[in-house]
């Protein structure tokens, strides 16, 4: 399996966020997206997750399931926990387990065949299983959200600042899970400004220019869509 992103360009609200981002990543590799805040790391992840439309560029997955889009191979672990406070931790997690379409691929052996309760135990929040999510602390909510990745097998994990709100012990657990996902033939694309110690890591560095030579970029930057001549 290989994810190929070719000259991705992204605009949000008419604002050019980044352009011509090109990379490839194969099974058993991690891609860490690094750079200062507000530079478009999250936008790149959301583009790959299909949540923000690309303005131009191509994204393809080799060796995936034929009639599925790239986002349908992915788990997205973002800033929002997607938890319903009125449901218990177990109800929250079991829902995703029965709702999400799993992706089984040759060459990708995931340990994401855990039951919901086992996943909670793995993340050491088993004791909260029958508590409404409203009662969970920020770290516990984060771990509950992470548990979703363990109960549905999907080969690509897209993670936006995965270690935020986690204590040191949970962060070690997280790194262990990420490492075993990679070793099992999965792909991880993570944005972070903290160092993450993972095997087989590539880095994608986002850097901000000095602001003087951005004329060429702004030239066809019109806030409009496809036609470049409004300015």
């Amino acid at each position: 399996m290989k994810l190929i992103c070719d000259s991705l360009t992204c605009e949000r609200g008419g604002r050019r966020v980044f352009e011509n981002v090109t990379f490839q990543i194969s099974s058993g590799e991690a891609l860490i997206v690094r750079g200062p805040n507000g530079v478009g790391k999250s936008s790149l992840l959301r583009v790959i997750a299909g949540l923000v439309a690309v303005r131009s560029g191509k994204m393809a997955l080799e060796g995936g399931i034929e009639d599925r889009t790239v986002p349908e191979h992915c788990h997205y672990f973002g800033h929002l926990d997607a938890l319903k406070p009125s449901l218990t931790a177990l109800e929250n997690l079991s829902f995703w387990r029965s709702f999400y379409e799993p992706v089984e691929l040759a060459g990708f052996s995931s340990d994401a065949t855990l039951g919901a309760s086992e996943a909670l135990e793995t993340l050491e929040i088993g004791h909260t299983a029958h508590l409404p999510a409203a009662f969970l602390s920020a770290g516990q909510r984060r771990r509950l959200s992470l548990a979703r990745l363990l109960v549905v097998p999907r080969p690509i994990w897209i993670m936006d600042e995965p270690s935020s709100a986690l204590d040191a012990a949970s962060e070690r657990t997280l790194l262990g899970l990420m490492a075993s996902h990679i070793n099992g033939g999965g792909i991880i694309i993570a944005a972070t400004h903290l160092p993450l110690d993972l095997p087989n890591t590539k880095y994608l560095e986002f850097s901000r220019g000095d602001g003087r030579d951005d004329e060429g970029l702004a030239e066809d930057y019109d806030g409009f869509g496809d036609s470049g001549d409004f300015l």
């Binding site: 530079v39 850097s207 030579d213 970029l217």
Partner: peptide, 13 residues
């Protein structure tokens, strides 16, 4: 605040 001028480079480590 030059948002637009973002460059992305891939680096193997």
């Amino acid at each position: 605040q030059p948002h637009a001028n973002v460059t992305a480079q891939i680096r193997e480590v």
